[in-house]
């Protein structure tokens, strides 16, 4: 169990836990791992996801309507860990559900569930002293976001505080699919590279094989979220795991051919 990108480029797949229900998320996560996802980000649904576009907002609403709780997401993580000992597993959340659960209690439970890392969308390095201390105590990798608007001095702090990988946001904006990748992404990865040897994963808007291949040219991995969540939204629950597996294989196919 660790965050390793065995494939080049690596793939981080985001899933909103509990959308459409926890059992289906479980099946989708296994299918995604088996189809070549190196890391699964298990999204904790939140009532006020300010960093997310409509696709993930709707997924959160569906998961919450089903009564999905942080404790359920940790339990799901534990099951996935048991089933796939080598997969990278990361909890992805807004801060308030974690605070409410109790920061230390959360870290201890996440470690016990065999999670590798934690990404909190609204946690920035300046606010992270206590957060980092508890993550370190429980050997969880803190994954921070780096943005195109972050000046170099911040990128240096972000790189220094991160473990596992650094998440480079491809553009200013919220999560969601887009037609073409912003030019912001490549220059951000270059700037970030000055400060870290950790893998750099590019996310926000990576939604098809072409984007995936493009990201592979300048970064170690791509994060695919909204495109997967949108596909889950469109699929019948029973078909969702196989559609996601096909989608992930399709992301990699042209990159394989190019080699």
């Amino acid at each position: 169990m660790s965050i390793r990108f065995a494939n080049k480029p690596g793939l981080v797949a985001y899933l909103t836990a509990g959308d459409p229900d926890l059992k289906t998320t479980h099946a989708i996560a296994l299918a995604a791992i088996d189809a070549g996802a190196d890391v699964i980000e298990l999204g904790v649904p939140f009532s006020d996801p300010v960093a997310d576009g409509p696709v993930i907002q709707r997924a959160s609403e569906r998961a919450l309507a089903r009564g999905t709780r942080l404790a359920d997401v940790l339990e799901l993580g534990k099951e996935l860990r048991a089933a796939r000992p080598d997969a990278g597993l990361v909890i992805f959340s807004y801060y308030n559900p974690i605070l409410r659960f109790g920061l230390e209690k959360f870290c201890s439970a996440a470690a016990e569930a065999g999670m590798d890392g934690v990404l909190v969308t609204d946690m920035i390095v300046e606010e992270a002293d206590e957060y980092l201390a508890y993550l370190a105590k429980h050997r969880l990798a803190p994954i921070f976001l780096a943005a195109p608007t972050s000046p170099d001095a911040r990128l240096e702090r972000i790189a220094a505080a991160s473990k596992g990988f650094v998440y480079a946001i491809s553009r200013t904006g919220i999560t969601g699919t887009q037609k073409s990748l912003a030019a912001d992404a490549e220059s951000l990865v270059k700037r970030l590279r000055q400060y870290t040897n950790l893998p750099i994963a590019v996310g926000f808007g990576v939604s098809n094989a072409e984007h995936f291949a493009t990201v592979g040219e300048f970064a170690d991995a791509a994060v695919v979220g909204s495109a997967i969540v949108a596909l889950i939204e469109k699929s019948e629950s029973a078909d969702a795991p196989s559609s996601i597996a096909r989608f992930i294989q399709g992301l990699r196919a042209p990159a394989m051919q190019a080699r």
Partner: peptide, 12 residues
């Protein structure tokens, strides 16, 4: 108080 925001906003 403090600042709990997406990284993109910190520079602003």
């Amino acid at each position: 108080g403090g600042r709990y925001v997406p990284e993109t906003l910190v520079a602003a």
